[in-house]
Design a protein around this nucleic acid. Sequence first.
DNA 1: TGCAAGATACCGCGTGGTCGGTTTGTTTTC
DNA 2: GAAAACAAACCGACCACGCGGTATCTTGCA
Lengths: 185, 185
Amino acid sequence: MNVTAYNRPKQPEQVRRALLEAAVALAEEQGLGGITVQAVADRAGVTKGGLFHHFANKQALIDAVFDFMLEQMDEALDRLMADDVGEGCFTRAYVVSTFECCDMALSGQALSISMVTDPALRRRWRDWIDARLVRHAETDADPGLHVVRLAADGYWFARVLHDGDPGTEAPEALQARLIAMTRED
Amino acid sequence: MNVTAYNRPKQPEQVRRALLEAAVALAEEQGLGGITVQAVADRAGVTKGGLFHHFANKQALIDAVFDFMLEQMDEALDRLMADDVGEGCFTRAYVVSTFECCDMALSGQALSISMVTDPALRRRWRDWIDARLVRHAETDADPGLHVVRLAADGYWFARVLHDGDPGTEAPEALQARLIAMTRED
DNA sequence: TGCAAGATACCGCGTGGTCGGTTTGTTTTC
DNA sequence: GAAAACAAACCGACCACGCGGTATCTTGCA
């Protein structure tokens, strides 16, 4: 007989995690629209019924995925700021993590872009980024730094548009330029 | 008897236009996912059958909307470049038109962002912007100008995220700063 | 009179979601 | 310390609905 999640030792944590990762993978491949309840369940090796046991509805699933992402971002930023202090340290971490996120086809990306479709997710993202900004107000409030962060966003956006193809210009040079702008006030 | 589009003077051009504008409006309010054939038809005061008479299928509708948008952008850019020449003129026009587009809740916006979901649209946008860039290669190839354009993109993106709310910082100051960066190489 | 514009009715399908049943774990009871 | 009782995990079949799309008919216009 087939061993399914039905008659297998119950592992709610793992299944829940599998569902989240399946959703992220699908979002990367096909955008937010690719997240269909059936597809997520299939990919996680669970049935729809099983999925709805863990998440009340589809929106709850997406919210959870979003939380998952924000946590990862927080971790990345904190890690990068560990060995950097003083004026502009957050902006530098922001730039580096943005470029990193582009180079390796890391999580989120297609997801965090399609989120703009959903006003609720848009609001949550806004709150998150605003919170981080006030947290580093003392070191990163300078308008010049603001421009640098905006440029990083723009670069990330361009990369998403170009399906990850860096195009003619070298990313390293641009990144170095932005980092340099961080130190000259 | 009720006057419907059934027994009303035929005005194919106007109806077609109404359908396009309805699609744009829906996209702004609910994202690309909000563009459903039924909703667009309803909003334009036409039935689904009428819509499908003008556009072979939904994709054709969306493509037409996209064309509509690109035309408007081209017009805006050319208009702004009419009284500006020399190094960085295109970048300045780009910055100004980006900020304009944010202030008035002009067309596109939510649409042009949700387009990232669709690989085909993404490709078309990429081709359009690349074409404009090579066209102004002589005046706007400088890496510093590239950073400025990226920052403009980032600002536009931030505004979309914040639902048009400019937040704490003054847009005018930022715009002036970016324009200034255009002239100091 | 013929053709374009538009209406009306309908179809197949995929979707999110529900529901009752089955299996596995854990706790209570004697 | 087993067995009974309960709760949690999960399945699988099903439903209602909205979607994109088609086919056919009616009306206005040249």
